[in-house]
Amino acid sequence: MDAELLQRFNPEEFYRHFLADGLRPDGRQLRQSRAAELRKGALGSACGSASLRLGRSSVLAGVRAELATEEALGRVEVSVELPALAGALFREKHRALGLMSFLSNTLTELLNSPAVFDPAQLAVQKEVCWMLNVHILCLNYDGNAFDLCLLAAIAALEDTRLPALMAESGEVPRLAVAAPGSELVAEARQLALLARPLPTTFAQMPGGQWVLDPCAAEESLGASVSLCLVEGRWLVFHQGGGADAGRFLEELMPLARGEMSKLTRLLEN
């Protein structure tokens, strides 16, 4: 049968041919991730931004800071958008919404956890603080949404510089972004994370092997698991498929640990 036909009508068999040789159809080894390309400060209009490419997947993340009054503590709110533009998979609204809510909720929870982010750096005055909205837009989807969105969010937050503030007189005195030469109430400041949560995603292939950094075709074959390392501890997001928990511990977690230095290098350059 024609290779292209086989891939379309019997992807499992198609993959089995490659996996027998320890290769994947795009030429990668089983434990090889795609080339990543990160650019910080991709948007001029946001307080902080980043664009990330992972093979053919690409996302754009921007941080918008808003002053909030009557809030005790600032927060990070993440919203992930997967438009139909990013892939035919998301033409069906219901499916896209499910993945979007999973990513938005999980990343919001992760980036607000006390081990990762210190909300004290968002405080301005008594009862005035910054709220950060991290908006992540997927431009092209080819698998591994979790790693892509989390890394882009981290890079955008680390790129964020909160603007200086001045007091604005008027009927109701309030704070505004400082004009040059005005008297400052708060200095501009750079955000920092306490620890970087670093993700690694694996997908399970028909033979039961796990491959690193799956593309969309590989994800659709079966289970996938995203491991997220926060200060030496793990968060595990495993969806849809039978897997041996022992293999996570013995095989995937050490592998994920090995990827950390590469991810740190990516975020630091």
């Binding site: 999980t106 929870e109 956890s113 081990a115 949560p197 698991v225 997220c228 390392l229 926060v230 200060e231 030496g232 501890r233 793990w234 968060l235 595990v236 997001f237 495993h238 969806q239 849809g240 498929g241 039978g242 897997a243 041996d244 928990a245 996570f248 511990l249 977690m253």
Partner: peptide
């Protein structure tokens, strides 16, 4: 899936866990 002794899904939320604690969660859950 207790007949095959396989983990079908696992979602963590809240603080991260070290590997040993996670493993005992799975064991207790199974």
């Amino acid at each position: 899936d207790s007949s095959r002794n396989q983990l079908v899904s696992n979602i963590s939320s809240g603080a991260a866990l070290d590997a040993a604690t996670w493993a005992s969660c799975i064991e207790a859950g199974a």
